[in-house]
Design a binder for these strands. Structure first.
Length: 379
RNA sequence: GGGUAGAUGCCCGAGUGGCUAAAGGGGAUGGACUGUAAAUCCAUUGGCUAACGCCUACGGUGGUUCGAAUCCACCUCUGCCCA
């Protein structure tokens, strides 16, 4: 069975349409995957999630290992039952926590020793542990255990991380016991293009079901990230899915699709939604701002989501102002709906051949509207 | 009428002679967030100014002092207790 079918290549960019087949259904790419780290996409019921056009969602191995643990997930009927999601699920291996919880772990040659961020309990994760856990959780796509590096990063550290990531990838491949689950390798290397190429070549030789780009959107600028994606994506096999992990802002996604990326995940729509930040076609808005006090219009005119169909900006501002949980819930829902509409537009544009101009204009517009986005984070 | 406690910036509230335009909350305003330790975090919040700085401020009026939100006198108002 073919796991990834290339449906169409855009003529003027590296963008492509694809169809990813998993044990729980097919996914049209380019795709955005909402993040449900601990088994739930924060604030959104699976029914509402499906209504946004989401076809595949994420969960996180590290967090599910900490609580409730693999055995409990199994006892509850597996990840799909726990999440009440019958579509495809992808689990991240915990490699991102090597980065995000760097103050709570110690990286060794063979694995990573975590001190639980909940109670300090020791949790050792290596390639085998991560792979076996993901086999048992039962996700449709599982990720190799990798070392996500920070930005900036010492060249020596970066090279060591790439070396470990490659070695661990081989161990993941070896430990992988369930062929109905797709296993993706992860290309690391920071902004070092030679390391990226090296890592990609070695992973490709191991023949994974798909390839991810990791270690990006960790503090570098949009342009730095896209430069790295532009260089690395074409190195990957055309007949396998390409996944840019953790990305990103709408313009990041559009730019990466231009480079030939098929899959994305990001916490921005839900996290920013909880923090009163709404993505809209005419740029981001912050619903806590007093400008919306008596605004009777929806967050985004024409948006079909439940939030925009039934609530005004003024009402949502009120919910945030008084701390009602409905505010975060509604904006999370809207933001995911926005992201899925964006992905739909992207696929449609590739389909009808108007993606190149449209995407260039989209990126230019978005850059203009978001200052922090252009500047990146100075370190 | 007698006694007693108090009056601080938008609000609550610390501060009992100089380090005070005044702690800490709250509220308000703005910002950040990229494979989620985040329904979180950060900044600003008397006036004028680009800034140095100047002015006005701790119930009121006077006073003591080189210097007062802080000490003294009187006044005004508020809470509580007793008649």
């Amino acid at each position: 069975m073919k796991r990834f079918e290339l449906v169409k290549n855009d003529h003027r960019t590296h963008a492509r349409l694809g169809l990813l087949t998993t044990a729980h259904g097919q996914v049209r790419t380019p795709v955005f995957m909402p993040v449900g780290t601990r088994g739930a996409v924060k604030g959104i019921t699976p029914a509402h999630l499906a209504q946004t056009g989401s076809s595949i969602i994420l969960a996180n191995t590290y967090h599910m290992l900490i609580r409730p643990g693999v055995e409990v997930v199994e006892a509850l009927g597996g990840l799909h039952a726990l999440m009440n999601w019958n579509g495809p699920i992808l689990t991240d291996s915990g490699g991102f926590q090597v980065f995000s919880l760097s103050t709570l772990n110690r990286i060794g040659q063979d694995g990573v020793e975590f001190a639980s961020h909940i109670d300090g309990a020791r949790l050792y994760i290596d390639a085998t542990v991560a792979t076996v856990a993901q086999n048992r959780l039962g996700a449709d796509i599982i990720m190799c255990f990798d070392e996500c590096t920070p930005y900036p990063c010492e060249p020596k550290r970066l090279a060591e991380a790439v070396e470990r990531t490659i070695r661990w990838a081989g161990q993941c491949k070896e430990a992988h016991r369930n062929p109905s689950q797709l296993l993706f390798g992860i290309v690391q290397g920071g902004l070092d293009l030679n390391l990226r190429r090296d890592c990609a070549e070695k992973l490709i030789a191991m023949d994974f079901d798909g390839y991810a780009l990791g270690g990006l959107s960790v503090g570098e600028s949009h342009d730095q990230m896209i430069e790295t994606v532009n260089f690395t994506a074409p190195l990957l096999p055309a007949d396998k899915a390409r996944y840019l992990m953790g990305v990103g802002m709408p313009a990041d996604i559009v730019a990466a699709v231009r480079a030939g990326i098929d899959m994305f995940d990001c916490v921005l729509p839900t996290r920013n939604g909880r923090n009163a930040f709404a993505f809209t076609a005419s740029g981001p808005i912050r619903l806590r701002n007093s400008a919306f006090l008596k605004d009777t219009s929806p967050v985004e005119a024409g948006c079909p989501c439940y939030c925009c169909q039934h609530f005004s900006k003024g009402t949502i501002r009120h919910f945030f102002n008084v701390g009602e949980m409905l505010g975060p819930i509604l904006l999370s829902l809207h933001n995911i709906c926005y992201y899925q509409r964006l992905m739909h537009d992207i696929r449609q544009r590739i389909e009808d051949g108007t993606f190149a101009d449209w995407s260039a204009e989209f990126i230019a517009n978005y850059k203009e509207k978001s200052t922090s986005y252009v500047e990146g984070i100075e370190q």
